[in-house]
Design a protein around this nucleic acid. Structure first.
Lengths: 241, 241
DNA sequence: CAGTGGTCTAGACCACCGC
DNA sequence: CGGTGGTCTAGACCACTGA
C-alpha cells in the first residue's frame, strides 16, 4: 500500500515503522540482533505501547522482523528457515520443498544492457556483476539462473568471496548490508535453447518455465535482476492466492 | 458471554472471527450487505471494540470483508474491482491488466476422474460439471480453460443459466452461495497439443504456461479445479513476494 | 523469577461519509 | 450533523522464555 497522495496526515505508527526501518537500514540493528523491547521503544518514541506494537506488527508482516513471544523481536536474517522459502517457490510434485545446491558457470563484471540498467535503476553504461549458475535439486539439474546486480552496490562481487554460497541473499545481507525484502516475478513459458540443452539436459525446443525476478531492498530499491529457467517435469512453481 | 474455557487456549478475536465467518457462510449476511457496526457487534459479543476490530481486521485481510471508512464494512462481492484481480494474475507485458471475455466450448456433466475426485474431495465416481472455454484478451485468444466442480454443490450448472457470465466466481457466489476465498496454483511449462493449436492458434509443441488452480471456499473446502493453458507472447503471469 | 511479546479493556479523539 | 471506521492511550492480565 503506497499512497503519498495525502501528505497532510500520516498515522503515527506508519512514521514509527519508517523510523524503525531506517534504523535497520543504517546498520544500527544488524540482522540477527534483538531490537529493544516494546515498552522501551514506546518510551523512546513517546507513544503508547499499542501504537508501537502496530508499527512492529507491520514490520513483522513484511518479514523485516520476526517476533518471538517471551524472548523478543529479532531483525530478520536470510538464513532462518522461515525466510529461506519466501523467495523460492519451486516445489516437487508431491508438495515438498527443499533448497537446491548450485554450481557457478560464469561470474564476470561487465557493462549493463539497456534492459538491465532500466530494471536496476542505474546509468545506461554502468557496470554490473553477472553470475550464471545451475542449481541441482535431488541430484537433477533443475534451474539455470542468470542474475545481475549493480557492481557499485556489490563491490568486488565478481571475484570475492572466492566461492559463492548457495543462498546469495544471505551473502548480500552479511557482506554488502543489502537485505532483500520483497520481489516481483513475471513468469513465461519458453522453448529451451542450446544452452538450456547443455546445462539442463533437455531437448532444444522443449518447454521451460522462465521466471524473471526483480529483488528489492527494504526501501524498494532494485537490488538484483534474475532470470531463471526451470524444467517442470519433476517440479512446479507454487503460488497461493 | 465469553467463558468457553477451552483446553487449548484460543484468543477471543479468533473465535469471534470464526463466528463472523459462519454467519456469512450461513447466509445471514449475503455478499454486498453491510455488517453491523463495530460498536454494535462488540456489544453483541460482549467484548471490547478493540477485540472485535482485531477479528474484523483479520477478515478484511483475507478479503472476506471490505472496510469503508465513514460508511461501514461490507461482505466482499466477486464483482468489485478490488477482488476481480485477486485470482487473475495474467497481465500484459507493459504491466496493465484487464479481464478477458470468454467463449464456452464445452459444458457437460460427467463422472469425475480419479484426480478430479481427489482434488475436490468427493467420491471416486461422483459427478462433476466440466466447462471448457477460451478466453480472449485484446481480441487475441489468450487462455484455454478447463474446469470441473462438484455437480452436487453446483446443481444444474451444466445447463443453467443458459449463458455463462465472464466471471464465474460471481455466479458461484450469487447463484450457488459458494464464495471462493482463496486458491492454490501450481504452474508448469508444457508443449502445445493439437487442441491448443486449434483454439489458441499456436504451433503444436510450442511452449505454453499451464496453471492448475484449486479454488477454496471460506472454510477451505475445494470448490473448483481449473487447468488453464496460456500463451506468453503477449502476456505473462505476475507474482509479488 | 523477571522480562518479553500476546491479548483484552474502556475510553478518547480524528477522518470520513452521507444527509 | 450523527454514525462509521481509523488512530491512540494507559493500563491490566496472560502465555511464554530463560536464567
Amino acid at each position: 500500500m503506497n499512497d503519498q497522495s495525502t501528505p497532510s496526515y500520516r498515522p503515527l505508527y506508519q512514521q514509527i515503522k519508517e523510523a524503525l526501518v531506517s534504523r535497520i537500514v543504517s546498520g544500527a540493528w544488524p540482522p540477527g540482533t534483538f531490537i529493544p523491547s516494546e515498552s522501551a521503544l514506546s518510551q523512546e518514541y513517546g507513544v503508547s505501547v499499542g501504537t508501537l506494537r502496530k508499527a512492529v506488527d507491520a514490520l513483522a508482516n513484511d518479514h523485516v522482523v520476526i517476533r518471538h513471544q517471551g524472548k523478543g523481536t529479532v531483525v530478520a536474517m536470510h538464513d532462518s528457515d522461515s525466510s529461506l522459502f519466501q523467495f523460492f517457490h519451486l516445489m516437487r510434485l508431491d508438495g515438498t520443498r527443499s533448497l537446491p545446491i548450485s554450481q557457478v558457470l560464469l561470474r564476470e563484471r561487465r557493462s549493463a544492457t539497456v534492459e538491465e540498467a532500466k530494471v536496476l535503476g542505474i546509468a545506461a553504461n554502468a557496470e554490473v556483476v553477472h553470475i550464471r549458475r545451475i542449481r541441482v535439486l535431488d541430484e537433477v539439474p533443475a534451474l539455470l539462473e542468470n542474475l545481475v546486480v549493480d557492481a557499485a552496490r556489490f563491490p568486488a562481487l565478481e571475484s570475492e568471496p572466492q566461492t559463492l554460497p548457495n543462498t546469495l541473499y544471505q551473502l548480500y545481507q552479511q557482506r554488502f548490508k543489502q537485505s532483500v525484502a520483497k520481489a516481483e516475478e513475471r513468469l513465461f513459458a519458453v522453448a529451451a535453447d542450446a544452452q538450456d540443452q547443455k546445462h539442463l539436459g533437455v531437448e532444444v525446443g522443449s518447454p521451460l518455465l522462465e521466471v524473471r525476478r526483480i529483488a528489492r531492498g527494504l526501501q524498494g530499491e532494485a537490488l538484483e535482476y534474475r532470470v531463471s529457467r526451470c524444467e517442470t517435469q519433476q517440479h512446479c512453481y507454487w503460488n497461493e492466492l
